[in-house]
Design a protein around this nucleic acid. Structure first.
Lengths: 114, 114
DNA sequence: TTGGTATATAAGCCTGTGGCTATATACCGC
DNA sequence: GCGGTATATAGCCACAGGCTTATATACCAA
């Protein structure tokens, strides 16, 4: 559905915490549930589904347990998405071509966040 | 407020499109509005506010125009957040061969799980 | 000042989604 | 089979946030 994209999957703080937890090592759903007392079991289960659909974790069945493992391909994609902007930025900094009537991008102090 | 974090700022497709548009070069709010016919002027303005608060764009005042510029510091932070997971993954995959403290993660598509 | 332009904010509606409780499904040991 | 355990799903409620229209603010020119 809508949540199957990695951007919205990562946008949720609880899901990021779960990713943090999984970064150390794979865990069963139950371990995740008990590691986050503020979340209920169904809540964790739904978050895990979103992470699964976003390709951020994979799951292996072990008896009646589900072992969740961090799966970095999705993050790599994300990484590349960001790198696109950063590279672009670098290009601009190192290759100052003609500057039109437009204001030049002065990366120094033109920050004026409201 | 709540939207001032970079994760939710990037989670919205319209805002990502605006970032794409700004990646080429800085633009005035009006240029952004007319480049996205599916968005209304107030809608664009609110998206720009979110991007501003997330530190993803900066704005300079030019007469009655606001020039928006991509501001990659926020993306760098994001990049680092992701790199944390990728490094962890690489460490696990390549065993304890060498331990480079390099923060750069090279592209390398592979999967081990499942 | 007035008028025109550029952008931001307000107020209301409405969908998406997170959290909850309860229930269903799947697996194991006995 | 039954009971216990592990996890997923369903149904409901509440809230965040996106969209829209209307209005406000800020600046410039005459």
């Amino acid at each position: 559905m809508t949540s199957s994209n990695i951007f919205s999957a990562i946008a949720d703080p609880s899901r990021r915490e779960i990713l943090d937890f999984l970064a150390a090592k794979p865990r069963s759903a139950g371990e995740i549930v008990s590691h986050f007392p503020q979340l209920t079991q169904p809540g964790v289960s739904r978050h895990l589904r979103v992470l699964r659909e976003a390709q951020l974790v994979s799951v292996t069945v072990q008896a009646q347990q589900r072992i969740y493992t961090l799966r970095p391909e999705g993050l790599l994609m994300f990484h590349d998405w960001i790198a696109k902007y950063l590279e672009n930025w670098m290009d601009k900094l190192e290759a100052p071509k003609e500057s039109p009537q437009e204001a030049k991008v002065t990366r120094r102090g033109t920050v004026k966040t409201k």
